[in-house]
Design a protein around this nucleic acid. Sequence first.
DNA 1: TCCATTCTTTGAATCGTTTCATTGTTACGA
DNA 2: TCGTAACAATGAAACGATTCAAAGAATGGA
Lengths: 339, 339
Amino acid sequence: MSRTASIKDVANHAGVAVGTVSNVLNYPDRVSERTKVRVLQAIDDLGFVRNDAARQLRAGQSRTIGLIVLDVGNPFFTSVVRSAEDAAALSGSAVLLGDSGHNAERESHYIDLFQEQRVQGLLISPVGDVIDRLDQLRERGVPTVLVDRRADESRFSSVSVDDDAGGYLAARHLLDIGRRRLAFVGGPLTIHQVADRLEGARRAVAEVPEATLEILEAAGQSVLAGRTVGNSLVERGDGGLPDGIFCANDLLALGVMQSLTMMHTVRIPEDTALIGYDDIDFAVSAVVPLSSIRQPTEALGRTAIELLVEENNGNVGEHKHRSVVFTPELVVRQSTVKG
Amino acid sequence: MSRTASIKDVANHAGVAVGTVSNVLNYPDRVSERTKVRVLQAIDDLGFVRNDAARQLRAGQSRTIGLIVLDVGNPFFTSVVRSAEDAAALSGSAVLLGDSGHNAERESHYIDLFQEQRVQGLLISPVGDVIDRLDQLRERGVPTVLVDRRADESRFSSVSVDDDAGGYLAARHLLDIGRRRLAFVGGPLTIHQVADRLEGARRAVAEVPEATLEILEAAGQSVLAGRTVGNSLVERGDGGLPDGIFCANDLLALGVMQSLTMMHTVRIPEDTALIGYDDIDFAVSAVVPLSSIRQPTEALGRTAIELLVEENNGNVGEHKHRSVVFTPELVVRQSTVKG
DNA sequence: TCCATTCTTTGAATCGTTTCATTGTTACGA
DNA sequence: TCGTAACAATGAAACGATTCAAAGAATGGA
């Protein structure tokens, strides 16, 4: 029946000028106690809620930050989203979340949307070939921070995790507990995360003269792909089995674990130690709790927002981008060290 | 260096009036081919992007829909979000996603935010005691559709899944394959979803005279809670074991499966058949692929948007809310029927 | 050629805020 | 009592789009 109340209605109802109402909302100190009470009462009476579009139009910028992730269902990103939201809230901003679902079209759609919304900035894990587009955005005053992807520092800030270090950490752990015949199980090496993790593992193995590293390519990133690799290992019999296995992610590791334990021919960790990557929720509740490499996702989200704020404080032309690289962390469980 | 171009800049650059530029964007048919080309060229030259705040201010309503879920990481909601986004895109709207994380404060924060944004409507899986608040919202022209929660039809539309039917379906399946001594494993019965699933199972069991249903209360909804229950079953030995187990969710079922298969004393499905609920990704890749009850999440998200559109088309005062209840679906795998 | 009709284009008004120069009020010391 | 400073309140202008009545241009028939 009645449209929502505007600041003008509030002003009339309270018997003050619109500017005064605005001051009550934005600079309460400039207003006398008496008027403030009256205005707040009027706001309550009318159920007034600020129209953000009008505020934003006048202010020239919104209080929202766009965040585009590859897959909200992925625990890695879920955690990044949470921490980004919390960090943004601290600086009075809200996060608009877009899920590209690894789809360049959806990604592009969200970039359009966020640009129309005049977001303060954009955090993005890019799918498609959008770097040039993001370059344009930056020139038009929308700073961008890349998430989980390193970038040319002359153009963008970024936050990422050092996959090479993670790979090193995993392999080093296997070596430290005395294993020497290691195997790496990983998806297509074209995925740079997988390649980097392998590289790190190689580095660790190279440090121990008598250690060897065998590479077992998996068909994908799934439990089933891991099981396939695991089955081929079981068929080798005792002699051919590696004594330490590093899987490029936890799903693969769980698949391998299923195969190895199913026939009760192989004991974990006695016959072979197993370590995964990502430390997903399931890792701790596997048949044999899985050692893994944990990524500092909370720090990623928080830092991404901080870098964005930094960019916003500088002037557009300035070259002051930063690439922050986090180091992952080893989580030891019974799949490598008997509890 | 230069602020982003406005429609005025485009008009100047193209040598036309602002109204004409607006027409090119919104009613291309009203504009001659020649001018249209010139304007589009100018838009391209200046990299003009529509300022949504201004459009929205004038239009009085935004083209966004607010969606507040309990946990984006939960596959159930992830899927609802996806389908809602797709359905919204069809009607030219975008979805603003908020994750309350089962936290009433965050939920309230998002309601505020979305109200300031003047969203077209709100889809929400409520955490806190927000029904009265949502009532207010509706009166102020923001229609609300409840997701995964039935509501008084005189006040709200809602979409949900019939948990009683799901429970019936699961138990009925166990009975259909000849099992008679059934057990229900479920978290706190205070959660209405759990209680309803149990109720449905009871209904199915009551239909078969010689069938019995034992209730095993689990400490939570996790794999570990399931394992605890599973271990207690293993200790019973062959005689006391139920020949059919229905778990109120897949995580519990996976935990039970781990316990039962670990010692190789119990064969699934020969000695006992096992069925879960939710059909999460892991169900298919369990050691023994898990039968489960699948919820029509895509339909939920899509329908929620449709109901919202319905509400928007009616007038505010009108009572035309609908509660749509979906029926879940049985997915049979090797944990109940030997492949 | 002229008039009527249809098609294009124009530009001022509007949406609901914030901003800020200006005006009004109060308090206090001289 | 007056002048001055500090404090409060005012209200018009601006943000950038859309809308729409009105003016202008083009077309075609007589």
